[in-house]
Design a protein around this nucleic acid. Sequence first.
DNA 1: CTGAAAGCGCTTACAG
DNA 2: CTGAAAGCGCTTACAG
Lengths: 327, 327
Amino acid sequence: MPADVSLATVAAQAGVSVSTVSRIVNGETRRASPATVQRVRDAIEAVGYRPNPAGRALRRGETQLVAVLAANLDNPAMATIASSTEAALREAGYVMILCDTHDRPELQDEYLAAMRVQRVGGLVMIAAVASPGLAEMAGAGVPMVFVTRRNPVGPGLFVGIDDRAAGAAVADRFVAAGCRRPAVVFPRRGSSASRDRVAGFVDRLAALGVASEAVLRGEGDGLSHLQVGYDGSAALFERADRPDAVLCVSDQIAYGLARRAREAGIGIPDPCCVVSIDGTPLNQWVAPWLASVRIPYPVYGAEIVAGLEAIRRGEAPAERLLPFAFG
Amino acid sequence: MPADVSLATVAAQAGVSVSTVSRIVNGETRRASPATVQRVRDAIEAVGYRPNPAGRALRRGETQLVAVLAANLDNPAMATIASSTEAALREAGYVMILCDTHDRPELQDEYLAAMRVQRVGGLVMIAAVASPGLAEMAGAGVPMVFVTRRNPVGPGLFVGIDDRAAGAAVADRFVAAGCRRPAVVFPRRGSSASRDRVAGFVDRLAALGVASEAVLRGEGDGLSHLQVGYDGSAALFERADRPDAVLCVSDQIAYGLARRAREAGIGIPDPCCVVSIDGTPLNQWVAPWLASVRIPYPVYGAEIVAGLEAIRRGEAPAERLLPFAFG
DNA sequence: CTGAAAGCGCTTACAG
DNA sequence: CTGAAAGCGCTTACAG
């Protein structure tokens, strides 16, 4: 229905000027008489008017578009964040542009530049990677929020969990369960999130009397956490003194580890229990043997949008740490 | 870098009019002298000019935006399609807007209307549902392609596989393997894809001597195929004459069935072998017991964009059926 | 081969 | 309380 109805159409229908209609469309109602407001609203309704975003964007120098740059949409956790962000943005009147950077700095920069040209009203970086353009962008005045991973090249609003605390919680559980040989599997070229989870785990174990050197570490390379888990756990399972409890810093790493365990004939959770940090719903279906720290990804969207709007209002960007829990 | 550089900036720099610059930017080079073309190109380079999409959209009445409406981004197959579509669109100079309809007609219509207002240059419907607005949209002249599910309310360009043939291929395999009690699990309120897979399976079995009545059917409700598999397989496993071979019309249904089998203490693939249609990479990691017909989702993106551009060129929309294979 | 001008739809000082 | 006018950046007949 809206296609050729412009402000002018409404103005003609209501018998007022386009200026007046524009003001009312934008909520500037107190400067108009109640009768006019009503007449204009009726006219809008009657002709089915919806503002043309191009006209508005041209004038304002900014669109209702918000770009989400995600490192890897094939990762279910990121797909869930993207999905919840989409819903929250829509709710708030924005439209989501989605870009998959494949964790590659050049591609991230290419997108960043393209989104600048598009005059997006905000930028959501899910697992951002360090890149020249990222630093530049921060200075451009576009509201930006960093999800899951902190801004690798500067300050910035962060939405995520307390990663150190999550790692520590797993350490507590292992010790409480009487595990004797804890291990952790993580990506070698890790993000702030991975690193913090590992550090929180190791530090808490140390505080509880397990020396850092006694904690086995399995590192894997590559973008795919499935592969990281598979590769990173290989050495652990070949040892004579195998671990009896392994922390995987993501669900996908746990899936990769499970495949390795299967091939090595090692049972999970007995004799080796596995805990991951993510807690994606899929676990219950395909990995019932897996215990997890559950991250509330479905609520990330709302937090991200709230953060974006806080920046837009000029508030000082404060971290938004969400609660996690075993489950 | 581009932010306040407009056609006028370039024109001043090159010492020509904006008309001339505009033409050259748009590839209209043969009407200009080679010297001018060169001068303008240098100027563009020098000032880092990139056309402002808002100005262009306002003038042309159409943007470089293409909207992808997906029924459920939490479904890995759809996430993979979305991801490959994003890459192909970017390659072709478009920008992807992503919307999650949650398989709900009202939400789909809301998005359709919003995308119309945005003046998107194309619409990609991944698993579209029937809705009033969908029929309307077809008449609006926006290029549209239907992925996975055919247009439920009319004609339209389809990108997918030959679903009947995929079902039939599974029937062939079951018969060749000497299975005696085949079954199929599918969503009760299914799409064209589900229905065709089931029909292809049943018809081929009939042709091979297994009467349609002898094929056990498990149906499940709801949007989640995980749940569909869990619910739909319950009755199958309670029977005295349990199936020895089950076709699940999607990977997720197979995951759901597996959970049920686990709880019922039934082994897979022995005594009951399971085949699904999807063949997502995750299978190898979390469901090594699962055989699949593999659908080449990573190439969907390129096909979708090719289809969009064919429509745009005014070609008659022909189906684009992609090859599938066991693996 | 090139440029001046109109107009896409919107917002916003400014004048009244 | 309301409107005329300018201008955001672009494209495209039209004139030369």
